[in-house]
Amino acid sequence: MNVASSLFAQILFVVFALLTVVSAAVVVFSPRIIHSAFGLLFTFCGVAALYVFLYADFLAVTQLLIYVGGILILIIFGLLLTQRVMDSKYFEQSHQRIAAGVLGVVLAGVLFGVVLATPWTQAPRPDTPTTEIIGVSLLTQYLIPFEMASMLLLVALIGAVWLARTKRGHHE
């Protein structure tokens, strides 16, 4: 039986899709930066739930671990170190609002048109677990990109530490 076609799953899907889109809107339009950070939390969780609906089990867990557990914590640390988040009178400044809004609406219209007008080939994948296939192909077909990704992470780690460290003689 196809799990994704039952009524309960459909309701759950709509809930998670709305959660993703609404919290992404909160991220963009909230005047308080800390609200944006918490909106981002719900967007990441919503995208992880959508990955579950797409039978990408390994990727859903990875999304939760890396995005929610890593990147979001990093962003919140950056906020707490650089912003007056506790100051209730402080609001975000924004600029180019009208131009960005018009461009965004036009671009969204064009992209929706393309999505609806293109005859996508439909060849659904069988609903099998993905972890084993991903693991095998990362160590065979995608071995070089896999190693490049590990080098990229190492370089980014060392670079981030070097950039963020307080330079000697520049203490204030």
Binding site: L74, A149, L152, L153
Partner: peptide, 12 residues
């Protein structure tokens, strides 16, 4: 992976 390294460097 790229998003993680990008966030780390950008925060630094």
């Amino acid at each position: 992976v790229v998003a993680a390294s990008e966030a780390a460097v950008a925060l630094a």
